[in-house]
């Protein structure tokens, strides 16, 4: 090859400067006051929603009447203990998230930057995995409560036809029912979450992988 093609391209590239668009001072000035729509912003807001959302569920009236049910099933203490543990872990995650979020700087090199963003996002992923496990655990405790309780009828405020069914059969139906609801609920939430997670980080992960390949 007589001449490196890229050298040729380089010459031409530098000639092309004159054809570039030119923005005025005022146009640039207006831009600095616009809101960023960067991926980091998106990750930040979506993560906040993900942190807050599971806790808003407790504000629903039906969730509060759930406490009566726990009482009847005799699992209130277990539930309170679990809640304390859960909040401690949630605060740990939020702290971790905030710390990593602060570390993201556009002045880092490309690899460090993608790495920091993905790490921040991974914190939220771990949090979601934790939340989903908690949901499953709570359902498991309810199933256990149903198994060990003697006043199933009072706990679920049953009336009518249900009272005619034998207690053993009723217990069995409720345990199976609760298990299925628990698993489906967790799968649904998890499905939505991981779809969102994948969409948000697809480009990032691809580029990060590419840079990682160049590391060794």
């Amino acid at each position: 090859m007589a001449m490196d093609e890229l050298e040729l391209l380089k010459k031409d590239w530098q000639k092309k400067e004159g054809e570039l668009p030119k923005l005025s001072y005022e146009e640039i000035y207006k831009m600095i006051w616009k809101k960023s729509s960067s991926i980091v912003k998106w990750i930040f807001y979506i993560s906040i929603i993900e942190f807050v959302l599971p806790h808003l569920l407790y504000l629903l009236p039906s969730a509060r009447s759930g406490f009566d049910m726990y009482n009847e099933l005799g699992i209130t203490n277990l539930f309170i203990g679990l809640s304390i543990l859960q909040y401690a872990v949630v605060f740990y995650f939020i702290y971790q998230f905030y710390r990593r979020y602060r570390e993201i700087s556009v002045l880092d090199n490309a690899k460090q930057l993608t790495n920091n963003i993905l790490r921040t996002r991974r914190t939220v992923k771990n949090y979601v995995i934790f939340s989903l496990s908690m949901i499953l655990l709570i359902f498991a405790i309810i199933v256990f409560g149903i198994y060990s309780t003697d006043n199933l009828v009072a706990a679920f405020q049953l009336e009518g036809k249900a009272l005619e069914t034998s207690p053993e059969k009723l217990k069995f139906i409720f345990m199976v029912g609760m298990s299925i609801v628990g698993v489906l609920f967790t799968l649904l939430l998890g499905g939505i979450y991981f779809l969102l997670y994948g969409l948000l980080t697809r480009k990032l992960s691809k580029n990060h992988k590419e840079l990682k390949k160049l590391e060794v």
């Binding site: 054809e19 668009p21 831009m31 960067s38 991926i39 556009v106 002045l107 490309a110 993608t114």
Partner: peptide, 27 residues
């Protein structure tokens, strides 16, 4: 550095933008 980082990592398509003068084609 900042420009490349934004293009590679931070940029997502968005609708909000300042109208700028028209130019016929990008380089």
């Amino acid at each position: 550095r900042v420009a490349l980082n934004t293009a590679i990592t931070l940029y997502r398509k968005s609708k909000k933008r300042v109208q700028t003068q028209n130019y016929d084609s990008v380089i």
